[in-house]
Design a protein around this nucleic acid. Structure first.
Length: 325
DNA sequence: CATCAGGGCCCTG
DNA sequence: CAGGGCCCTGAT
């Protein structure tokens, strides 16, 4: 760590009311994601660090409601007093990142009648695509996922957090906080390479340069339509067809964004939808379009997370082969 | 021991 | 638009 552990002893609360149906656990925790030291989950409780403007905050979410009557207690931990308007802005940001305000009822109607999706609703009804991260932070995560195995991705993230991150303690939880892009902007590429980032060192440098030299207009990006936004995101160095897919879905909640399928995902979807090892990408996309239309990526997300959740309890041999931990 | 591909992307020809 | 190269690691 490049600084001492920071204690965040003050906190403020707000009650959030997501649109029903809303799955707290399915939305704040994604079994398919690799673990990072900046979040912590247990059923009905969730902690994360949040870098928001110049502040590093602790966030705790507590499930106080149900799927049909959702209610979440948001606690914001800080080292100094926060103005009411700042607190409101944090609450809005959390609502956006966990997609608490969109209406997914039409999707649930379709899902209930679907043979593959129907059963997953018993566990995940109301689940949203979400991320704890800002656009910059998610871009980093997407970058360290590229062309490697999950084990190395985890190693790279840990190295980055322990070098550039900041440790915070709040509510008896010790978590890492994300760094600002300019702290990477300032270091030499070689010192990034020393963190075993390989050729990604250059990519992370260019991204840090990009994000520290300008403030992205997030309001504008969030209001763009799919094609316009996609074009914009592809301008980020190191973001290509695979990564942009994750960004569109998890950061911006475009639930129909499903054009790129990587080979390992193709195999998983083939098994889940057709019970075959290798189905053509076009056939997969056509099938999803037919069954779920503009909700097709969200539909796959339900199936995907359910599968990884299942895997926690019992090993799924064909899946283990594909995810290569 | 050597070789190789991996939860892509950029760049070149 | 196809294909080589990229850091490092563990699997073979």
């Amino acid at each position: 760590m490049n600084s001492k552990t920071m204690a965040l002893d003050l906190y403020t609360e707000r009650v959030l009311s997501p649109t029903p149906p809303f799955s707290f656990n399915g939305t704040v925790h994604k079994p398919s994601h690799f673990p990072t030291p900046d979040t912590f989950f247990e059923p009905d409780y969730y902690w994360q660090s949040l870098r928001f403007y110049d502040q590093l905050l602790g966030i705790k979410l507590i499930n106080k409601g149900s799927i049909t009557k959702p209610e979440i207690l948001l606690q914001i931990y800080s080292s100094s007093d926060l103005s009411p308007s700042f607190v409101e802005a944090v609450a809005k940001e959390i609502e956006y990142r966990f997609d608490m305000r969109s209406d997914i009822k039409p999707f649930i109607e379709i899902a209930l009648k679907d043979s593959v999706l129907g059963p997953t609703l018993e566990r995940w009804n109301g689940m949203r695509a979400s991320t704890p991260y800002s656009l910059y932070e998610f871009t980093v995560v997407a970058t360290v996922l590229q062309n490697t195995t999950v084990r190395r991705t985890v190693q790279m993230m840990d190295n980055l957090f322990s070098t550039f991150g900041h440790e915070i303690v709040f509510d008896a939880k010790k978590l890492s906080g994300f760094w600002l892009p300019n702290s990477i902007h300032e270091v030499a590429e070689q010192s990034l390479r020393d963190l075993k980032l390989g050729y990604r060192a250059k990519t992370l440098k260019r991204q840090a340069d990009f994000f520290s030299s300008q403030r992205m207009n997030m309001e504008k990006l969030r209001s763009m339509d799919l094609d316009e936004l996609k074009e914009k995101l592809l301008e980020i160095y190191g973001i290509g067809p695979a990564s942009v897919q994750y960004l569109l879905f998890e950061v911006f909640h475009h639930y129909g964004a499903f054009t790129h399928i990587s080979p390992w995902e193709q195999k998983i979807y083939s098994m889940l939808l057709f019970n075959e090892k290798q189905v053509e990408v076009s056939r997969i996309v056509n099938e999803l379009e037919k069954r779920f239309g503009k909700w097709k990526m969200l539909a796959m997300h339900y199936i995907f997370e359910d599968l990884f959740w299942l895997r926690k309890n019992k090993s799924i041999p064909w899946l283990e082969e594909l995810i290569r931990l």
